[in-house]
């Protein structure tokens, strides 16, 4: 009889004897990130010109979300060492020992392959290629290379988070157009001010884990300048879908007003640099940046949904 501690068949024993529950694997998929991916991809899908079967659309969105989740599992498999050090991530399944890195890697690879094949069969192979690129970019380029190497990690790595609306758009059109590039750019340019506002508040945590975030490497003053510069680019970019005709006037007004608020908060973050007021300014910018992106994509969805409802006479 083999016991769990004997060397013979140790790997089999470790796997069979795992205490991991399905919920632990679900946690590896970063469900909150998956819900954001579904949301932004759905916006890209709904605003795209043309028609797509509802079943094809739902299966493709599901595949996109699973692909994003798979890249999250691969990210957690690789980052277990730094996740264990940081307060925000120390309760994840791998640092707590509920799932091994090897199991998470296998889980991530299997889901990556299935999700890319599924969207390719359901929609088209351009969407599959974009999803595959998103997974590889996040799991390898960002996680393995950029994150620990440069303070520009989240700038370049932000491309992975910005691709879902482009995937949603290509599910319908089988193409990449100026409109889908604009949706990509909005999230891409939004990412640095969003994450650097958080990094200003959590710089000790990132330093402890040895991650070269902008405030730790270039200093908080430089970070505040860059936050402001990116927001100056972001605010007009947010209005672009209205300017190109992709979105309607309601979107234009919402994007202009919320863009102005983003600019004001970025200016506060830039100009108030010491004490609790400085922390408050960074916190306000971080919190509002989430609302900003949510509102832009929610209005895109709502506008097109209402237009569709009136077209159908509902």
């Amino acid at each position: 009889m083999t016991t769990m501690t004997e060397p013979a068949g140790r790997h089999e024993a470790a796997f069979a004897g795992s205490l991991a529950l399905p919920g632990d694997y679900w946690e590896l998929l970063k469900p909150r990130v998956m819900s954001l991916v579904i949301f932004t991809a759905a916006a890209g899908l709904v605003v795209a010109p043309g028609h797509v079967n509802i079943v094809v659309a739902l299966v493709s969105l599901l595949a996109t979300a699973v692909g994003a989740g798979a890249s999250g599992a691969l990210n957690m498999a690789y980052e277990a060492d730094i996740d264990g050090v940081m307060k925000r991530t120390s309760g994840r399944p791998i640092p707590t020992g509920r799932v091994t890195s090897g199991e998470a890697t296998a889980f991530g690879i299997v889901l990556s392959v299935f999700s890319v094949m599924l969207i390719g069969i359901a929609a088209n192979w351009l969407s599959a290629a974009l999803l595959a690129f998103t997974i590889v970019f996040y799991a390898l380029v960002y996680t393995v290379w950029l994150k620990r190497a440069t303070p520009q990690n989240i700038v370049i790595g932000g491309a992975a988070g910005a691709l879902p609306p482009m995937i949603g758009y290509s599910i319908v059109t089988n193409s990449v157009t100026l409109d889908s590039v604009i949706l990509f750019l909005i999230i891409f340019v939004w990412t640095p001010p969003h994450f650097w506002a958080l990094a200003l508040l959590k710089s000790d945590d990132y330093a402890k884990a040895g991650i070269p975030m902008m405030p730790n490497v270039k200093g908080t003053a430089r970070t505040r300048v860059e936050i402001l510069l990116y927001t100056i680019v972001l605010a007009p970019l947010g209005v672009m879908p209205w300017a190109t005709g992709l979105a309607g006037p309601v979107y234009g007004v919402v994007a202009a007003v919320t863009g102005a608020v983003m600019l004001w908060l970025a200016w506060r973050c830039f100009s108030v640099r010491v004490g609790t007021e400085a922390d408050k300014a960074a916190k306000n910018l971080f919190a509002f940046s989430i609302l900003y992106l949510f509102l832009l994509f929610a209005v895109l969805l709502a506008e097109r949904g209402l237009a569709l409802a009136s077209h159908l006479g509902l």
């Binding site: 009889m1 068949g9 069979a16 004897g17 205490l19 991991a20 529950l21």
Partner: peptide, 30 residues
């Protein structure tokens, strides 16, 4: 003989197997 699992490990394995079964079933339906 072979590997003997504790009751907790057996419960976890069963839950994982059920989850895999449901996921494969959903994939077939999709």
């Amino acid at each position: 003989t072979g590997i003997v699992l504790s009751p907790a490990q057996q419960r976890s394995r069963r839950a994982r197997n059920v989850a895999i079964g449901v996921a494969v079933g959903l994939l077939v339906l999709l």
